[in-house]
Simulated scan of single mutants.
Amino acid sequence: MADPAHSGFSPASILIIRLSALGDVIRTLPLLPPLRARFPAARLGWLCEPGQRPVVEVQPLVDEVLEFPRQDLTRSLKSGHLLRAGSRLRTTLATIRRWRPQVVLDAQGTYKSALLMRLSGAPLRIGFARGVAREYIPGAATHHVTPVPARQSRVEKALSLLAPLAADPSLAAAELPRQAGAAALAESLWAAKPGRVRILISPGASNRQGYKRWPPRMFAAAAASLAAGGATVQIAWGPGEEGLAREVAGHAGGGVHLLPATSLLLLAELLRTADLFIGNDSGPMHLAWLVGTPVVALYGATDPVVNAPWGPGHRQVAVTTAQRLAGGRDPSLMAAIKPEAVIAAAREILAGVNPSSD
């Protein structure tokens, strides 16, 4: 294959591999505009898990979404249905090969994504170098990238994969097109609870990362204070989080409202029409900045530099670096963040959104 940095290099198809999770998929979306500008005639594909598909398939620059059925494979293996798991994996690999990618970018950096890249049949395969990728398979990539500096936003890390292709990272941008049906429903859910400003709180994080969760009573204290100031405060929740959300709403009192179950795109539209989002380092937090909503993001064990909301106008409330390094993944670390700090950060943002909010 020709030098990918050469101006005459023109692949017919490019596949991005970022399987999960929601926040990580969102932070990989900024790759799309530079790739489209560099290769306007190329088909752009994305390989992801089914749960992330709603965010990817509405991207105007993505020509096709391919699915990796991780949960189905896991269930089959755990239940001893090895033949079914093998059949599903062969079908997935056949789908990728029929797509005939000429370039693959592995933005995941795991054994799973590296193996999928290696088996894709693409002659040009770009991945993170040993020591940068979370998991590394020698020979999976033909071109290796080492982001500089090492400690940087996950968005900037993903954009470093553009270097071998000579695509311009300054063109990076991300959006989620408005979904009319979900937007109408979101507006009705907000209109039913009138207030001077709209605040959406998501107290959850993935079940495997409970150490990211700020204590429910602290969320409730911040929510109650902001509601007492005239804001409409609603609590959103995802799969398995209803009990947590009810606990927050219950401690906060009658001025804070629990939303019904939402789809991913409905949550996006609720966020789009909110004035502020408050939440942990989670998928909903990254979804908030994607749709242009100011964020107050809370960090304990996770690095606020690496996991920052992308773009200006956000606030981060985090434990000290010394606390983070000493505390590891201790869930109690998040309790070091006081409600007063979160309320102050929220009011700073709201003062710019609505000067009368104080």
Rank of each mutant, 00 (worst) to 15 (best):
K78G: 03
F39W: 02
S87H: 14
T95V: 14
L93K: 05
S113Y: 05
R100N: 12
L105E: 06
R75G: 11
L105M: 10
V56T: 03
Y111W: 12
V65W: 00
E57I: 11
L35H: 01
R84F: 13
D106A: 10
P50L: 07
S79H: 13
L73H: 07
F39G: 01
K78E: 11
L83Y: 05
L22K: 00
A114V: 07
P101N: 03
G51P: 06
P40C: 08
S20K: 08
Q59Y: 07
G23T: 00
P101I: 00
A42Y: 07
P69E: 09
F68N: 01
V25W: 01
R88I: 11
E49G: 14
G51I: 12
R97P: 01
R36Q: 05
E57W: 10
G80V: 01
R75F: 11
S113C: 08
P54T: 10
L89D: 03
L93Q: 10
R84T: 14
E49S: 13
R53K: 14
T91H: 14
G51S: 14
A42K: 06
S76I: 09
T92A: 11
P40L: 07
E67F: 05
V104E: 07
Y111D: 08
L31N: 00
P54L: 09
V25L: 04
V25N: 00
Q71E: 15
E64Y: 05
T28I: 06
Q59H: 08
K78N: 09
L32W: 01
L61S: 04
